[in-house]
């Protein structure tokens, strides 16, 4: 199930969508699944399930720690797919955010096939640029999956154009030059990047990296089609005394973020 109908719906309603991220298997497969379902219940429009990886070069300390613990807990590729299936039952579209090597190892077409079978919407690939993604472009076409590629403040106009041309679902605008993690202030580079990306595509644009509060979500919703939040939600589970408390914290933060994202002015085009 593509993210496209969801993003059309939020756009028609005049607001941005909230995309919430949690890694599979942290603290356990069952709790991660329950927490992601809680995000949907609390207002997240789209869910990203992270595939924990041993060498996450785009992630800051919070997501690194969660991924390390998921892997130490014995997380396998099949658990990631099972998590997707459990969250997709809610009816919300579920994307998998993954570094490329686990997919390569599984087999690009096989992973696409099994992800589609689990009800997944597609992949976000932080270390795969379309230039290297020939086999993924083919597999995502064959299995009807979204392929969310990233653009960054350092991307040239040519790179933005070639990236959005390969993208399906939405374009992920990386708001800052840096790794994942909550930040004090939202990025000043993000609005400019979104403007440059809009010149190149009609696709919805999601902005991620550094959003942690409802106020920040509302600010981003003023110029983007989707607000993407990861580390702040993961931190709810990291800091919680127990799993129940963690899920409650995820639910509360998601509600605040959703209110911000949904209150934001409709992006002008």
């Amino acid at each position: 199930m593509s993210v496209t109908p969801t993003l059309e719906k939020t756009r028609a309603a005049g607001h941005a969508a909230l995309v919430g991220y949690l890694p599979a298997g942290f603290p356990t497969v069952a709790t991660a699944t329950a927490a992601a379902r809680a995000m949907v219940e609390a207002g997240a429009d789209i869910v990203e399930i992270g595939f924990p990886y041993s060498d996450p070069v785009m992630d800051g300390p919070v997501i690194q720690r969660a991924a390390e613990r998921a892997l130490a807990g014995g997380l396998r590729a099949a658990d990631v797919l099972r998590t997707v299936e459990g969250v997709a039952e809610t009816g919300a579209p579920v994307l998998v955010m993954t570094y490329w090597n686990p997919v390569l190892r599984y087999g690009v077409d096989a992973f696409a096939r099994d992800l589609a079978a689990a009800g997944g919407a597609g992949l976000i690939t932080p270390d795969l640029i379309p230039d290297e993604g020939e086999d993924w472009l083919a597999a995502s076409d064959a299995h009807g999956l979204d392929r969310v590629f990233l653009v960054a403040p350092s991307s040239s106009e040519e790179r933005i154009a070639s990236t959005v041309a390969a993208t399906r679902g939405f374009v992920y605008a990386q708001s800052v030059m840096g790794v994942t993690g909550a930040r004090e202030h939202t990025s000043s580079a993000a609005p400019d990047l979104v403007t440059r990306t809009r010149r190149a595509t009609e696709l919805p644009i999601g902005v991620g990296l550094g959003v942690r509060s409802g106020a920040q979500a509302a600010e981003v919703a003023g110029y983007a089609d989707a607000v993407i939040v990861g580390s702040a939600l993961v931190k709810c589970l990291l800091d919680a005394g127990d799993e129940k408390e963690g899920i409650a914290a995820v639910r509360a933060l998601t509600a605040e973020l959703a209110e911000g994202a949904h209150a934001g002015a409709r992006p002008t085009r």
Binding site: V57, M58, W100, P126, D127, L128, I129, D131, E132, F149, L150, V151, A152, P153, S154, S155, S156, R159, T163, Q174, M177
Partner: peptide, 12 residues
């Protein structure tokens, strides 16, 4: 070989 890195590094 190739470039399996974030888009943010491509310009550099």
């Amino acid at each position: 070989g190739g470039r399996f890195v974030p888009e943010a590094l491509i310009a550099a």
